[in-house]
Design a binder for these strands. Sequence first.
DNA 1: ATAATCCATATTGAAATTCTAGGGTTTGTG
DNA 2: CACAAACCCTAGAATTTCAATATGGATTAT
Lengths: 144, 144
Amino acid sequence: MRISTKGRYALRLMLDLAVHASGDPIRLKDVARRQNISEKYLEQIISVLNKAGYVRSIRGPQGGYVLQNAPKEYTVGMILRLTEGSLCPVECVEEKGKSCAMEKDCTTRILWQKLNDAINGVVDTVTLEDLVDWRAQQADHYVI
Amino acid sequence: MRISTKGRYALRLMLDLAVHASGDPIRLKDVARRQNISEKYLEQIISVLNKAGYVRSIRGPQGGYVLQNAPKEYTVGMILRLTEGSLCPVECVEEKGKSCAMEKDCTTRILWQKLNDAINGVVDTVTLEDLVDWRAQQADHYVI
DNA sequence: ATAATCCATATTGAAATTCTAGGGTTTGTG
DNA sequence: CACAAACCCTAGAATTTCAATATGGATTAT
């Protein structure tokens, strides 16, 4: 039960955009270098984020990407679900009210619901801003 | 990020053994029928549980399987980790003290640690006995 | 005009998943 | 003892997913 590279890269990409935000667009090439991720793969990932309106793209030389909204507007869950697909551990508890054929004598469903709640409790609570803050604290730690 | 069928089937298998425990061995054929899972696939799954000493097998006619220990001795995490492999959402927080090359400036690691803790908080807390109890409550609900 | 940047789609290689197939081994019963 | 019921073992196959790579196009600042 792993988060795929796509989701993890998307998160690092968004965090990179948040951390290096200066008003000017940020080139994907620079993100790729800083994060040590293939630029071509990042292109595919940011394309999804772009279509969802999470980032804005500026084409041509001196182009790049900027976050569309403030970091606190993005939860980790939003980013991961968009790029990874569902974070739900089993299909049958995917959405409230969803049912499955075996439901009435399926006991494990209760467990999956608890697990799903636990996962959502983290990813829907932590925002990109939290990540930025954590990063600042890490930086402090190394400066002192 | 899904739990595989292998892990889910293993859980239903263990629960079936717990619920139908009577002292006599339980045939895999019966579990397969009740749970609507391929008997051949169940054979592969129970083989893992058997080798780990979670169940005991009795060969020959009237043979079958019984739980080795009381249901309260098995957490859901034990069963899932054995059959699924790790439940950790990313490799770098797999085990306490594990480090990764990018660790010192990897902010997302903090997030993954939280997510891992949340998942473990559920699967290492819920036992097979809890599932048996939940099932009894479900049964009550349908009788009344 | 050029080159830097984003954009779109196709392909690929490896691995995992979810079984199915085909036998073998043990052992209680008649 | 013969038989059949059960567990045991390994291989393989069909499908899907993952994680990229490859190729070329469109836009636009200089």
